[in-house]
Nucleic acid binder design. Structure first.
Length: 433
RNA sequence: GGGGGGUUUCCCGAGCGGUCAAAGGGGCCAGACUGUAAAUCUGGUGGCUUAUGCCUUCGCAGGUUCGAAUCCUGCACCCCCCA
């Protein structure tokens, strides 16, 4: 076990932030964490080539552990990702193909690095991939060395399994075995790095306790687990979803502008929780923002702070600047006053579609333009949008359904900015050919 | 094995021979109000060359009829009751 003394009471901090859902041994664990530097891990399976905001809860918590003076390990599930975690899933999922998986592992590893400090002495973070130690096992070895310690009746009692057994789709032997892998990871990280604590989302409770049980049986040691709540809205639904799907951390999947806008638009009822979960702000600052939200709600200080901090963390200073500049332009002055170069720079992040220059020259009906920009699914829908007064060209409401766009409508030398409703923007970029 | 009920547009759910692109609700989109919030109110919500026009949709395949989501036959899936 690592030595050294933590900087502050991490459990107390996590509690007031609302980040503790469950923990094993609520007497012993806080004492341990207060007394010494502890090695703590969280795992992320490479089910996609990017993390999304749902992952941020555990990841930011891991970060807080590090800041409090503990040593974090992030695990990328190259092995577990091949199997598929049944936790919280109502249906069996398709296996990912190995090449895709490999790419995902790389991409996640890259992303995860942003959130932790890998060069700060004794509590430098570590990045590991469970494929490294799982690949050595043959099926028979694994059954003999690990499987032997798992009573099937205990496995069947786990929530994740039970729910699936009750559901019509059932569960395959493969997914059923998932928890053995994750459990073994914990033991392995204990052996190799003295890792004694695993954290994760609340859906990981079963897998975490499986690891704790396994360690007790295999090594006779007491390990610990702590889970964070799921990221939900005040109405109980999941956060981090938009019409376009999940909000991803990868700029290819969710541009910095869209990412920033997502947080700017968080409901008042949820933003306090988000600040507690995700921001580095102190308790006093967060409470001041709570107050500001009640007194001067129109300033939307909380949302601004949240969006700023998270966008900076995920997309860097430059990503943040671009997102903010785009926001200023779109939600501020008419953009005749802004230079073409700047507009083009800003537009890069906003959803945009490329259209042959010719179409503009021939005259492009707005209705078609809206479809091309992805603001309407069909021309009928676009027509409806215009008729109801919800369509804008360069921030000016479209009054005529028959409006035809031509070179006169350009902003800068190749863009037309379309908008649906109050805040959905898209850019058409006209290109040669 | 026997008997009964069901499968409708994104979801729930009405419709049971023409007046049905199909009531109502939810969701979603837009408008008003605001703070790029919530709540509320209003409108919209299959597609197309926007047309008192055409095409596609009511589990699937056929049939009856001038005309079918609605009737008949077969098939598939789901639910309930009896054994």
């Amino acid at each position: 076990m690592s030595s050294g003394v933590p900087r502050w009471d991490i459990v107390e901090e996590l509690r007031w932030r609302g980040l503790v859902h469950q923990m094993t041994d609520p007497d012993q664990l806080p004492r341990l964490l207060a007394a010494q530097t502890v090695t703590v891990y969280a795992g992320f399976d490479p089910t996609a080539d990017s993390l999304h905001v749902g992952h941020l809860v555990a990841l930011m918590t891991l970060r807080r552990f590090q800041q409090a003076g503990h040593r974090p390990i992030v695990l990328v599930g190259g092995a577990t990702g091949m199997i598929g975690d049944p936790s919280g899933k109502s249906q069996e999922r398709n296996l990912l193909d190995p090449e895709q998986l490999q790419r995902n592992v790389q991409a996640l590893a890259q992303q995860l690095k942003r959130f932790l400090d890998f060069d700060c002495g004794p509590h430098s973070a570590l990045l590991v991939n469970n494929y490294e130690w799982m690949k050595q096992f043959t099926y028979l070895d694994f059954l003999r060395e690990v499987g032997k310690f798992f009573p099937v009746n205990v496995m069947l009692a786990k929530d994740s399994v039970r729910q699936r057994l009750e559901s019509p789709s059932g569960i395959s032997y493969t997914e059923f075995s998932y928890m053995l892998l994750q459990a073994y990871d914990f033991v392995h990280l204990y052996d190799r790095f003295g890792c004694v604590l695993q954290i994760g989302g609340s859906d990981q409770w079963g897998n975490i306790t499986a690891g704790i049980d396994l360690a007790r049986r295999m090594r006779g040691v007491q390990l610990f687990g702590l889970t964070c709540p799921l990221l939900t809205k005040s109405d109980g639904t999941k956060m981090g979803k938009t019409e376009q799907g999940a909000v991803w951390l990868s700029p290819q999947r969710t541009s910095p502008y869209r990412f920033y806008q997502y947080w700017i638009n968080v409901d008042d009822a949820d933003v306090g929780k988000c600040l507690r979960f995700f921001s580095q702000l102190s308790r006093e600052e967060i409470e001041r923002l709570d107050h500001s939200r009640q007194q001067q709600p129109h300033l939307r200080e909380s949302q601004r702070q949240l969006a700023q901090e998270l966008t900076r963390l995920v997309h860097g200073e430059q990503g943040l600047r671009r997102a903010q500049r785009a926001t200023e332009i779109f939600f501020g002055q008419p953009f005749e006053q802004i230079s073409p170069q700047e507009l083009e720079e800003v537009f890069a992040d906003v959803p945009h579609a490329q259209v042959p220059w010719q179409r503009l020259q021939q005259g492009l009906p707005v209705v078609e333009a809206l479809v091309l920009a992805g603001l309407a699914k069909s021309k009928s829908e676009a027509r409806r949008l215009v008729q109801q007064g919800g369509a804008y060209v360069n921030n000016r409401r479209v009054e005529q359904v028959e409006l035809v766009l031509g070179p006169d409508h350009l902003v800068g030398d190749k863009c037309v900015v379309l908008r649906s409703g109050r805040k959905k923007y898209a850019v058409l970029q006209f290109v040669a050919g």
